[in-house]
Write a protein that binds this DNA or RNA. Structure first.
Lengths: 330, 330
DNA sequence: CTGAAAGCGCTTACAG
DNA sequence: CTGAAAGCGCTTACAG
């Protein structure tokens, strides 16, 4: 039975004393360098470790090695299954490589992003995974300093950097094809007001393809805000007020489609009979409760591997790099 | 312009040399002890900090102080908006109190939970927030050792510990009332097979209330698995196969209701006309795309504050404690 | 095969 | 008001 009193935790010195060997020897054995020690010593140290209940203290190791096994992920929010899928897969890939991921919620705010960047540097993290980063003074400094970074979804805001994401221009074009091949000719677009590179590219791809198909007029509505749900609702309201209900709507993200769906329902419009919705992201909830939504599928649960690969690349080779993920048409 | 070469980061010693003062003085000023230094010295040090680009290294501080500002949250998954809301609010509350949260995804697996507990102890974290923890050997040891822990949603598995969650028995009873007051008399229950304390309490409350209302037969179906979506689908299938479609279904969680909804749709059953669904959790997506679901509302975005309060309690006062959160009937 | 020793960056009584 | 010094736990050439 373990005592309920908290005593000073055992250190290498405690183990060394218990085993009657030097600290250096214990350190080597703890770190798996067992071939350079006699079997008998290894055994004695192992026993001592169990007896005194030793657990390594990474502060000491980090201080000495000048690097930790921590990797920071900065994400704009957690309330989106897209983020959850990216975070979960990256966490798994990092863990498999022996790293621990710290997930920071920046709320899409530059000031919080900088606060976290500084906090993470103080933790001596080994790398930064910036999911949908926002341009900020601190980020600019980190990039200039050559901090090991991988950007996800949104492209590096200051040029340099590794990138993992889909071809958003193509995804937008595919969304156009989806509506077109369903026979719809008069379609609108719903998007966030202050678009990131993601939004811009998806719009560009969609409109480009539509024009190539001979469509000259593409009604569009935007709305500001942080929640794509609310953006979708408001943009749908504006578009309907201006252009009435169109045959189809291309929504820059599935969450925007969810918002548009709600406004349609409240307006007595039946989706998809009266108006077809197409989104981008392939939200995993679609097949369960949003069967009315057709979406460009992105396998965010596959992002973890290439993200860690690129981080590795940044560590060892350095220099820019990108990994474009495939997307599907469900 | 910052150099693109990475040089050794500035330490207190760098600053001290640049300012022509001792390391101790710089340390004091960095830590805000400015009243014990002359204004002139403070100014000189501040300037030196800016010039050499100093940023504190927490490894050194943690080693010396024998404690960090890190708090670990272990959660069974991220792919549920319930978790996202708890994580986001806790992160905000911790940040306001000067702590940094590390979010770990245990995938509801005892082995991973133990792996993370050990990793977090090595990071010298100051506390552990166990969201829906699972019983494990490591957890038992940590509890016995008196590690500072707050349990969320699921009760402490080994007796001792602080707890934040709702009154699940009452929530189950409220769900029963919801169906009853809608005039439904023949209702079934959908639940996960290996129920946690959450599931058990919700079922207990529901069945107890139903019996009190004179209902003697309550058809129930269970299914195993990790995904409540799939559990809901499968349990609905089993119940329908055994009892046909009932008037109403009480789903232990909203995610289970989503699963049941899909099975109903695939079976040509119209929800809610043919069968009413009641869930528990108040998933924020309901109002957007699941208007057919009535749910017992839980404000998970309010959990952060009491969680941090209880952690504080554990640190200072110690001993068991609990904070029961209210829930609503939407 | 093993150990003594230096040093990572920081804090903190203590002395002055 | 300021500094010299010890020490937190660990790793790692180096010597033997």
């Amino acid at each position: 039975m373990t005592s309920k009193q908290r005593s000073a935790p055992a250190s290498l010195a405690t183990v060394a004393a218990a085993a009657g060997v030097s600290i250096a020897t214990v350190s080597r054995i703890v770190n798996g360098e067992t071939r350079r020690a006699s079997a008998e010593t290894v055994e004695r140290v192992r026993k001592a470790i169990a007896v005194v209940g030793y657990h390594p203290n990474h502060a000491g190791r980090t201080l000495r090695r000048r690097e930790s096994r921590l990797v920071a992920m900065l994400a704009p929010n957690l309330d989106n299954l897209v983020m959850a899928a990216i975070a979960a897969s990256t966490e798994a890939a990092l863990r498999a490589a022996g790293y621990v991921m710290i997930l920071c919620d920046t709320h899409d705010r530059p000031d919080l992003q900088d606060e976290y960047l500084n906090a993470m540097r103080s933790q001596v993290v080994r790398g930064y995974i910036m999911v949908a980063s926002v341009p900020s003074a601190g980020l600019k400094d980190f990039v200039a300093d050559g901090a090991p970074m991988v950007f996800v979804n949104r492209r590096p805001p200051f040029g340099r950097g590794a990138f993992v994401g889909i071809d958003n221009v193509k995804a937008g074009a595919d969304a156009a094809d989806m509506l077109w091949s369903a026979g719809l000719r008069r379609c609108g677009v719903l998007a966030p007001a202050q678009g990131s590179s993601v939004t811009r590219d998806r719009l560009k791809g969609f409109c480009g393809r539509m024009r190539a198909l001979g469509v000259t007029e593409i009604p569009a509505a935007e709305a500001a805000g942080r929640s794509h749900l609310e953006i979708g609702y408001e943009a749908a309201r504006r578009l309907a007020a201006r252009n009435g209900w169109l045959e189809g709507l291309m929504c820059v993200s599935d969450q925007i489609a969810y918002g548009a769906y709600r406004f349609a329902r409240e307006s007595g419009i039946v989706i998809p009979e009266r108006c077809k919705l197409v989104g981008i992201d392939g939200n995993p909830l679609n097949r369960w409760i949003a069967p009315w939504l057709r979406s460009i599928e992105v396998k965010y649960e596959d992002f973890g591997e290439p993200i860690v690969e690129l981080l590795d690349h940044v560590w060892h080779a350095g220099g820019d790099a990108e990994h474009i993920m495939p997307h599907g048409v469900a």
